[in-house]
Design a protein around this nucleic acid. Sequence first.
DNA 1: CGGAAGTTTGAAGATACTCAAGCGCAGTGG
DNA 2: CCACTGCGCTTGAGTATCTTCAAACTTCCG
Lengths: 242, 242
Amino acid sequence: MSDALRATIKVACSNCNLRELCMPMGLLPQELERLDNLVATRRKIKRGATLFRTGEAFGSLFAVRTGFFKTCVTSEDGRDQVTGFQMAGEIIGLDGIVNDRHTCDAVALEDAEVCVMPFERLGELSREVGALQHHLHRVMSREIVREHGVMLLLGTMHAEERLAAFLLNLVQRLHARGFSGSELVLRMTRQEIGSYLGLKLETVSRTFSRFADQGLIDVRHRHVRILDVDALKALLPQPGVA
Amino acid sequence: MSDALRATIKVACSNCNLRELCMPMGLLPQELERLDNLVATRRKIKRGATLFRTGEAFGSLFAVRTGFFKTCVTSEDGRDQVTGFQMAGEIIGLDGIVNDRHTCDAVALEDAEVCVMPFERLGELSREVGALQHHLHRVMSREIVREHGVMLLLGTMHAEERLAAFLLNLVQRLHARGFSGSELVLRMTRQEIGSYLGLKLETVSRTFSRFADQGLIDVRHRHVRILDVDALKALLPQPGVA
DNA sequence: CGGAAGTTTGAAGATACTCAAGCGCAGTGG
DNA sequence: CCACTGCGCTTGAGTATCTTCAAACTTCCG
């Protein structure tokens, strides 16, 4: 097989093992082929490099193929807030649509690869393919709902509840991608976790230690094993029958 | 003029004084007319009543014509988080798209009226009218970016900074609608402000009092006059040259 | 006009933060 | 192969901000 052919096959949504999680979800075979044509290019990003930065012109949405990203907004005096962590199959760049400029940075936390989806063409195609139009709307709506959840977390939860919610969310998403439902390797630092959860890195570290002392998890730096899922879930704000 | 005719004229986007802020933004006359046909019904909501509740079936987006809303998510154990306050020209209901069910409550904080936009038809029309398609994308993207800002606020700011950001955002939006740029009447309680800002009502009240002591504002319960905009802006996380 | 709801203010207390020091792993170069 | 260096992580002590609990006052609505 030639390199060119391999690349063509590899990039095709129709052959992608993420197709049930990612943009092609629910599309018919002939619609899928049109999406294949649209997703013409991929892009590799090294660990620590940015996919885009605040202020850069917006042109495309990106679907994570491999690797792990964080997105963060930065205020001019240096305070920054991680707004999300993205893994395979998830869409990055929606923030850029409104003003044709990105309003956050997207940074690869490990060597990564993304599919580049020119937004103009995505719009054209979604005018003809109803399923794609609806899927795009759902992707944006899902992001809005996710952020509501983060607001609830930041606005009302204590450190232990925040970290429990964070860990459970991560393993759940990893599990949906075929990884373990109880073991995970953190791709981000304590500082980045803290930024996402509105806590200082020391508080994140202390809370990890407390969970370990209570026998809820086993932490060894970036490696976390969940020992008592139910106890972690019990920390979340959905305990009673209410 | 007959009641029927008056209603027709009143509901038409083409005659609406909010058309430059709301859904019709940037549409050509003939496109506007098609939007008029889509926005067939209005709905009045009394103060304290809900436009929709968590769990209800999603069918339409709503454009605020008059009045003032809050949206809030509630965790089963009673904790709730106000996710936004919406005024004339703003769109409510985007959260419902992803799962065809609403995931938050929308409550009128004063007697209000909304334009009902059936989402199915909005999708159809935006397939034919490119400007509408793009505008819908922008509305959703703007909401995502707004929520990034709230996450930055909840994750990194102190009480004074949060309240300053809140007040400045409110007057700015009111000013864009022809109201004063320095005087406003709060439509929400201290409790609701606190819920939005991740603070307790007592902290909100104390922070108002501190601002008043410092001569930054004049507070008389729900009535607020901003006396020193620059000082308030200086509290925000964009002080230096950075 | 009366009662409920909302607001203000005080005092005590808790959670998370700041500052600081030491540890450990990973990657590099001798 | 091992030592070195840097970055990230952990842990402790003291502190600050915000919260909790409580009481009194004001406004608004029926």
